[in-house]
Amino acid sequence: MTIANALIDTVRASRPDIELDVMDLWREELPEFDERTIQAKYKRVSGEPLDASESRAWATIESLAQRIREADRIVLGVPMWNWSIPYKLKQLIDLAAQRDLLFTYDGVHFGPAVDVARADVIAVRGQYYGEDGPTPGSHFDHQIAYVEFFLRTIGVRDVRTLVVDRTWDPAADDAIADGIERARRLAAAGSL
Score class of each variant (00 low, 15 high):
S55T: 15
R73D: 00
E28T: 14
L95Q: 04
T135D: 11
A96K: 02
K90L: 03
Y105Q: 06
A59Y: 02
L101S: 03
I61G: 01
P79W: 04
Q91H: 12
W26Q: 07
I122H: 03
Y129C: 13
G77W: 00
G77E: 01
E35T: 15
Y128S: 08
A97S: 12
G126L: 05
D100I: 00
D51I: 14
E35I: 15
G126P: 13
R36C: 14
D94T: 06
Q39R: 15
D115S: 14
D100N: 13
S46T: 14
E32L: 15
I85E: 01
S55M: 11
E54S: 09
S84L: 12
S84T: 15
R56K: 15
V124R: 09
V45Q: 10
A40E: 00
T104D: 11
D132K: 09
P112K: 05
D72A: 07
S138H: 12
G137N: 13
R118V: 04
W58R: 05
E32T: 12
P49E: 13
I68R: 01
H109W: 06
E48L: 15
H142E: 01
L95A: 08
D120W: 01
R44N: 12
Y128G: 00
S63A: 15
V78F: 03
D34Q: 10
Q66M: 10
I38S: 07
A123H: 06
A113C: 08
D34L: 09
D141K: 10
D94Q: 06
A52W: 07
P134V: 09
Y129R: 02
A123C: 12
F110S: 12
I85P: 01
G130S: 10
R118K: 11
G130R: 11
G77I: 05
M80G: 04
I38G: 02
A119E: 05
D51W: 11
S53L: 14
H139S: 08
I61T: 05
R36A: 14
R118E: 09
D72H: 05
Y129Q: 11
P79Q: 10
Y105G: 07
